[in-house]
Nucleic acid binder design. Structure first.
Length: 589
RNA sequence: GCAUCCGUAGCUCAGCUGGAUAGAGCAUCUGCCUUCUAAGCAGAGGGUCGUGCGUUCGAGUCGCACCGGAUGCACCA
């Protein structure tokens, strides 16, 4: 059977009631109550109905209430002025609904009716640059969206989409040429095979970049050289390609451990360069269809926004003929659609690239690669320091992702020791717990904020393990595990969930019934913070239940089994949601 | 100048397609560990939702105009 939520089931009842009064069925929509003391759910349909049918809203509400009154799904239906209908569920109905989730592998989450193959573009680090906190959001949000979309049945292919084809590569080539001119990569007459081994190690590459970038910024001549090298690289100069390959490979090896520690994975480790074979085709098509025009020596695609205002054009080819990131992004869309057969592209990228993607989407739509609504820019705000400026370390530098993870792990370890954990766990488990707590802290601190908004990133947040934090979620899940473990040791089994006898049970059940709503909203808006809210709410509900209902001490066996059933389901849901957030739960902590 | 995002409690943030008395966490204060993990639970105080108009029976939510902040606007990514 289809899993329909409480709101949907009750909604049907109310829709019928409205239909019976010759009114639109959509008026029967049910929402969670805003006044819990008056009811658990409410129907506000009588208010718009009053306007639509020119009748007194209170009377309509009373008529509706009368019609649904007898339903055995409901305990009570009450009308309050000016026409609110407050609904309390029958406890039996609630319990049986919750029991149904117990048998469901997705614990109440509905799968999509129209599965798509989605390209999820996130991460996006540059080759030759170390990962820093700026890469955190993209990775964490992207990873979460990937898991969430997959959970509901989409096929998702994640692509790290490295920045490896732009001027920064030319800068690197020129910088290496300067320090190591004797290398064969720079000899145009070199005909032999280039060395398999990289001339420099990754640390050396990475230490060169900031200086090279600085030099190009201050010296136009150096910048020209870098641009020229970029063009030659793109045109296939063998020595440059060989050197570029080394930089790319080493960069990937360097960043892999950080992504691994974060639990972030990519199906494709493509980069801008991988779209290169499509660039000439795209340029050709754009010219033929007269979408691209020449302007100031460059080939551009003009862009007029939704309001009909002309915005800056997208540069398809620079005046020297080289491709830039707009070119490769456009070419990548063609590759994804035509070669990889994808239906949709989602980009989890910094908000500041908004215009860039509007331009690219505009071109892609005009070239008929994808419909406009299949190209989504899921931008995120910047991580700022306490001064509301993009986050910097005390000495003004960028904070390396590695260092952030290490700091958070050390703090988690310290906190763990404070609880006397070293007497309970061996060194290996201690390290594992500290790592999981650290990742949960970092991820939850980031994910619980709305993706679009900037947020203040404070290192102190990572020494905070109380309140609305990742560790709180872990802690409550670990307590669930602990009880279930104890029950098992005593030979106690989770059983049928009975109608609630306490408000805490009822609340927990209601919380668990709302899981699908949270997932739906998350997917619709591509905002994982709704999952965070659900997860936190579930933890809170469970904690209250935990405090009020002492499971192991309960003498009524049916009650005890029911409570174990609730605990088991709460854990299953929490595991599902935290999995979608990319947060792993330890066995104990 | 044009465009995008943001402005909600002292601080950091939620508020789902407009609905009743705007919610959390931190911080402050008060209780609760001889009962399943106190990284917890219960409770208190704290707000002209940036400002002003408008639409509506009804606006934190929608529209317009301002104010304030962040960001982006041609050959960087």
């Amino acid at each position: 059977m289809s899993k329909s939520s409480i709101e949907q089931q009750i909604g049907l009842l109310f829709a019928d009631a409205f239909t019976a009064l010759d009114m639109d069925a959509d008026l029967g929509r049910i929402t969670k109550s805003q006044r819990p003391e008056l009811g658990q759910f409410q129907c506000n349909g009588a208010l718009p109905a009053a306007k639509r049918y020119r009748r007194n809203p209170l009377e309509i509400a009373q008529d509706i209430a009368e019609k649904v009154q007898s339903s055995e799904l409901l305990k009570s239906v009450e009308v309050t002025p000016p026409g609110f209908i407050n609904i309390k569920l029958a406890d039996d109905f609630l319990a049986s609904s919750v029991n149904q989730l117990t048998d469901d592998a997705l614990v109440g989450i509905e799968t999509t009716e129209s599965p798509e193959h989605i390209a999820l573009d996130f991460g996006g680090p540059n080759a030759a640059k170390p990962l820093h906190v700026g890469h955190l959001r993209s990775s964490i949000i992207g990873e979460s969206l990937k898991r969430t979309l997959r959970t509901v049945g989409h096929k998702v292919t994640s692509d790290i989409h490295l920045g490896d084809w732009g001027t920064q590569m030319g800068m690197m080539i020129e910088a290496i040429k300067k320090t190591n001119p004797e290398l064969p990569y720079f000899d145009e007459n070199f005909k032999g095979e280039y060395p398999k081994k990289s001339p420099l190690d990754v640390t050396e590459f990475m230490s060169m970049y900031p200086e090279a970038s600085q030099l190009c910024k201050s010296d136009p001549e150096e910048m020209d050289k870098a641009r020229q090298a970029t063009l030659e690289l793109q045109q296939g100069r063998a020595g440059y390609r060989a050197l570029w390959q080394h930089i790319r490979n080493l960069s990937i090896e360097e960043m892999k451990p950080d992504f691994e520690r974060l639990g972030v994975t990519f199906d494709l480790w493509y980069g801008e360069a991988d779209a290169d074979p499509y660039v000439s085709v795209v340029v050709q098509e754009a010219k033929e269809k007269k979408i691209a025009i020449e302007s100031e020596g460059a080939l551009v695609v003009p862009y007029t926004d939704d309001k009909g205002k002309e915005q800056a054009p997208m540069i398809l080819l620079k005046s020297d003929g080289a491709a830039i990131y707009a070119t490769t992004d456009l070419a990548t869309i063609k590759e994804r659609v035509e070669n990889l057969k994808m239906d949709r592209c989602i980009y989890v990228v910094d908000n500041r690239q908004d215009l860039h993607f509007r331009q690219v989407f505009n071109a892609a739509t005009q070239l008929n690669y994808l419909a406009k609504d299949k190209l989504t820019f899921a931008g995120f705000g910047t991580m700022n320091g306490p001064d509301n400026k993009p986050f910097k370390t005390r000495d003004g530098g960028v904070l390396r992702l590695t260092d952030l993870i290490k700091t958070a792990t050390d703090l988690a370890y310290t906190r763990l020791k404070e609880t006397g954990a070293q007497e309970r766990f061996d060194a290996e488990e201690m390290a594992d717990i500290a790592h999981k707590v650290a990742i949960a802290t970092i991820k939850f601190a980031d994910l619980h904020n709305d993706r679009k908004a900037n947020y203040i990133f404070d290192l102190e947040k990572f020494s905070q393990f109380e309140g609305k934090t990742g560790p709180y979620l872990l802690y409550s899940a670990v307590r669930m595990k602990s009880i279930l473990r104890k029950a098992e040791e005593s030979g106690l089994m989770a059983g049928n969930i009975m109608a609630p006898t306490t408000e805490e049970e009822r609340e927990l059940m209601l919380a668990m019934m709302s899981i699908n709503k949270a997932v739906e909203t998350t997917i619709e808006n591509l905002q994982p913070h709704h999952l965070c809210d659900f997860s936190y709410g579930l933890s809170q509900s469970f904690s209250r239940f935990y405090n009020a209902c002492h499971i192991m001490a309960e003498t009524d066996k049916n009650k005890q089994q029911s409570w174990l059933g609730l605990t088991k389901l709460a854990l299953k849901q929490q595991e599902r949601i935290l999995d979608m957030l990319g947060i792993a739960i330890p066995e104990r902590m």
